[in-house]
Simulated assay, not measured.
Amino acid sequence: MRTAMRASQWMRALTLIAATVTPLSAHGQSTIGFDGRWTVNLSTDPTKPYEKQMEIKLGSDGSVSGSFYDSRILAGRWKNDRGRTCVSFRTTDGAGPYYTSACLRDGGVEGQTWAEHRSFLFNWNAKRAE
């Protein structure tokens, strides 16, 4: 015998589905999690914090915009693949380009920035800005 669901049961079921479905962009990739402001820890010494802000906006066309280390993101791409969402983008300090790549991991961001003109590769972490 079939039993009809009451309206309150339907609402609970729909709420549960909405909470567990990952929204997709126009080209079928998840944009949840990366958009927004992040505090990047650039310190090489854990006792001496050195933090800068990063703002990321993922476009439905796979583009990345925003800012990193007080510089506007000039060009960038993002992709959700192999169970993770990652970005790559380029900024500049006026003397040369900085190439950055980063991935979401456990609610934070792990990244690295390469500046050929300064001969360094820097690994960093970020947490959601408050």
Rank of each mutant, 00 (worst) to 15 (best):
T3R: 15
A4E: 11
M5Y: 13
R6N: 14
R6I: 01
A7K: 13
A7Y: 10
Q9I: 05
Q9R: 08
W10M: 14
W10R: 15
M11I: 12
R12E: 14
A13L: 15
A13P: 06
A13F: 15
L14A: 10
L16N: 11
A18S: 14
A19P: 03
V21D: 08
V21I: 13
T22V: 14
T22Q: 13
P23H: 09
L24Q: 15
S25P: 01
S25D: 04
A26H: 11
Q29R: 09
Q29W: 07
S30E: 03
G33K: 05
F34N: 03
F34Y: 11
D35E: 10
D35K: 05
G36A: 08
G36R: 07
T39R: 02
T39Y: 03
L42I: 08
S43A: 15
T44F: 05
T44K: 07
D45S: 10
D45F: 03
T47N: 08
K48D: 06
K48P: 00
E51N: 12
E51F: 04
E51T: 06
E51L: 07
Q53P: 10
Q53C: 10
M54K: 03
E55R: 09
E55N: 13
I56M: 02
I56F: 05
K57L: 08
K57I: 05
G62A: 02
G62P: 01
S63E: 02
S63V: 10
V64N: 03
V64K: 00
S67M: 09
S67G: 14
S67P: 07
F68Y: 09
D70A: 07
S71E: 06
S71L: 03
S71D: 05
I73Y: 03
G76M: 04
R77S: 09
W78I: 03
K79T: 10
N80Y: 01
R82M: 11
G83L: 06
R84N: 10
C86D: 00
V87R: 00
S88C: 12
S88G: 13
F89S: 00
F89C: 01
R90K: 13
T92P: 02
T92Q: 07
D93F: 09
D93R: 03
D93I: 07
D93H: 05
G96E: 07
T100H: 01
R105M: 11
R105E: 12
D106K: 10
D106C: 03
G107R: 06
G107N: 05
V109Y: 02
E110H: 08
G111H: 04
Q112W: 06
T113V: 11
T113N: 07
T113D: 04
A115I: 09
E116A: 15
H117S: 08
H117P: 05
F120P: 08
F122P: 04
F122L: 15
N123Y: 15
N123G: 13
A126V: 04
R128E: 03
R128Y: 02
